[in-house]
Design a protein around this nucleic acid. Sequence first.
DNA 1: CTGTTAAACGGACCGTGGTCCGCTTCGTAT
DNA 2: ATACGAAGCGGACCACGGTCCGTTTAACAG
Lengths: 199, 199
Amino acid sequence: MICMTLMPGRDSERVDAARNRSRVLDAAAELVAKRGVENLTMDELAKTAGVGKGTVFRRFGSRSGLMHALLDHQEREFQTAFMFGPPPLGPGAPAAERLRAFGGAVIARLDVDGPLLRAVAAPGDAYYSHPTQKLVRQQLTHLLKEAGAVGDVEMIGYQLACCLNAGLLLHLRHEREMSLERLVLGWESLVGSVVGPEP
Amino acid sequence: MICMTLMPGRDSERVDAARNRSRVLDAAAELVAKRGVENLTMDELAKTAGVGKGTVFRRFGSRSGLMHALLDHQEREFQTAFMFGPPPLGPGAPAAERLRAFGGAVIARLDVDGPLLRAVAAPGDAYYSHPTQKLVRQQLTHLLKEAGAVGDVEMIGYQLACCLNAGLLLHLRHEREMSLERLVLGWESLVGSVVGPEP
DNA sequence: CTGTTAAACGGACCGTGGTCCGCTTCGTAT
DNA sequence: ATACGAAGCGGACCACGGTCCGTTTAACAG
């Protein structure tokens, strides 16, 4: 017959595929926990997970894709928090306050997810085009507008987002030994500068 | 004898070394001009330059070190311009104006040096620790103080510097198709925000 | 010139991210 | 049960950045 297996089928995943996916994710989480993100090699991951390397790449596309998958859970949680969660991060608080809280939330994740977040940043500008990054900017831009920021709000969104990138924050925290409080204050000042004086 | 050749000698470089250095740099410049930064491989570079790969790495340490060497001339020129050149970039103009001009100068280099500047950015936080990057921040911080910025001026320096990174600017310019003018205006607004209202 | 020494050389070698492609397995249609 | 096509599999393979180390050579002393 012509209409083979099933319709272009959305999310159906063969059971072996699903099993291998979780094998890989489990192994990755374990290896990352044990020896840190930068010491994870794809070869070793494949071997530990008991699958071929091709399988890992078929599933996750690239090293940073894998990292992204590892972050997926926390990322969704964060996104839900700032889109639907309680104020001051979520809706309900004044936009300027939500902006401040946004940075605070990013910085609060630093010690846990920072290295992974940095590892996700692919070379080239894939980083800026990544859905996650886009969502961050979209939220920032949205809040900026709501807070009454004037001028090229999209541009300001980029500028703010880029001051929250994990590479920078981790550098400040570890090489320059800045405290989380200082990072938060720095962010809040920046926000204060760009949203202008309170109405 | 014990005191061999010459004193720990500062800058003396053997003639073969010097010759090979310029061979490599010439070949690199040519290859980059011909096929772009991202298509330059160290193997090919070594072969084109007619030296061994070991020589290239001995001389320049790493791929990004090589890129840095390629940028050296323009970088020195830029540094001299903002430290000793004519206003508004150099000393003589009001600090706030110099800050604006600084971003303008960086953005003006984009089309020429941008890809190279982005290629220099090494993974990890080596980028932020690089002398060039430090100089940029130092200058920004200096101007900020002079312009009367209040608060954590060092932090603001980092924030400003990070809004001028080549990766971001190239993304805005090419993926988002923003004009140079828009980038400059975006920078100037940012500066306006952080240095506060004119005295 | 000759001898000596440290610097420089170069290319074989390695680790790692990523691709390729012939083989296997799953899931359905009959 | 059987047939069959697509999805999945896995490991050999490739490209590239970076290292190592035995060999060559510039530079100076005598």
